[in-house]
Nucleic acid binder design. Structure first.
Lengths: 214, 214
DNA sequence: CATCGACTTGGACGACCGTCCAGGTCAATA
DNA sequence: TATTGACCTGGACGGTCGTCCAAGTCGATG
């Protein structure tokens, strides 16, 4: 059975297969043979499209980061209809809505969340000794999360007539770390009730770092 | 060269070797041969002491949890000399001291911290389908962290004449999640300045969940 | 001293891994 | 139609893995 594809599309397909396998069974389940079988192609195709397995894993990381960026951008989307309530109370409410809009996406994809942590750990293990803190997959992950979070926070403040009392990057860093820790904890105990409450806590804590614009 | 040991001691030695290897190169570096070589014994000894490699990894997890408990207990230790300043201000200061006392230990052992996350992920991947949320290594890790954190928080409150306005377990859960997320972030960017500031933030946020006893 | 059981040795086995390659297939071009 | 080059096939190779085992080495016990 021959099903020919341009190398670019084949590469994308193989990366998707690799991600599907990794979601189900961790990075250890990603073998050249398993990827080939999942994609319905023969073994040689993988090395025809990727110089080595390491290149395939790197492509997985890049795709994951891209998807993460896109997922965060849509997850943080705020309602566009009515005028927002102003002041700190309005800010807190806007943060609440934005963060809670993100949660269902996370809750529905625990395997994907776990894979993200695994890729982070893998990336930390395999990054060249000492040298390149940039270009690293884990670094990219957090850089992208930072950008999306900062954008979200700035829009929230602008809409409600408030401003941050410390650099937005600082607020974003703390908020993302809290979110990160809570999601990891949830992956362990799956206590959805607790985390919903705690997401509200994040909104309140973050809102505490803004004042009404004078 | 023969160096005989009772099976129990040999087991402990092998686990230590496995942990040393895992700290340096991740769980993937833990192979039966590598463990045997690191311990200076021949290949067969490992399977004489452990029924399978899986049993060895399980023993690694248990040892790690035990060491984690011990490390947390000493890390959270508070000064015992003078009388503590009372009230919320005293509580905040006590939390500040306790949390900051813990940081140097973490900062000196990034590989160990990373390994803890890797074991968590590994444990989540390999826990039996659906069934046993208890007895799992990841679950044990957080259960132990919970216990230590609760003890710490309760002592802080008792010493300063304050009380928590929500269940201590809730406060502990949030604090540990924040700590967890911040450490993971630090492993990625190694921004020690930021995290020191953020640890203070944790103390302030946690202190905000107590009131002075009437 | 002989025996026994705990502990160790080092090689063998089959399975799976990443990598490579000689050749086959097929649409597009000359 | 003949040819070219991108794409695909499936087996082979060497290496490492977990596991197993027959044999060897001891201290303790009778």
């Amino acid at each position: 059975m021959l099903n020919r594809l341009p190398a670019d599309q084949r590469r994308a397909q193989l990366v998707e297969s690799a991600l599907a396998l990794a979601e189900g069974g961790g990075l250890g389940a990603v073998t050249v043979r398993a990827v080939a079988e999942h994609a319905g192609v023969s073994l040689g195709v993988v090395h025809y499209c990727f110089e080595s397995k390491e290149a395939l894993v790197a492509a997985m990381g890049e795709t994951l980061v891209l998807q993460l960026s896109q997922a965060l951008r849509t997850a943080f989307t705020l309602p566009q209809d009515g005028p927002d309530p102003q002041g700190l109370r309005g800010l807190r409410q806007l943060l609440y809505v934005g963060i809670n809009a993100m949660w269902p996406t996370i809750e529905k994809t625990p395997d994907r969340q776990l894979l993200t942590y695994e890729i982070t750990a893998y990336s930390l293990r395999h990054r060249a000794a000492g040298e390149p803190l940039g270009g690293n997959i884990a670094t990219d992950q957090y850089r992208i999360m930072d950008v999306e979070a900062r954008t979200f926070l700035e829009e929230c403040a602008a809409r409600t007539g408030t401003e941050w009392i410390e650099p937005v990057s600082t607020v974003a860093r703390l908020a993302l770390a809290m979110l990160d820790g809570l999601v990891l904890r949830w992956l362990v105990d799956r206590d959805s009730d607790s985390i919903v409450t705690e997401l509200d806590d994040i909104a309140a804590i973050v809102a505490g770092r803004a004042v009404e614009t004078t």
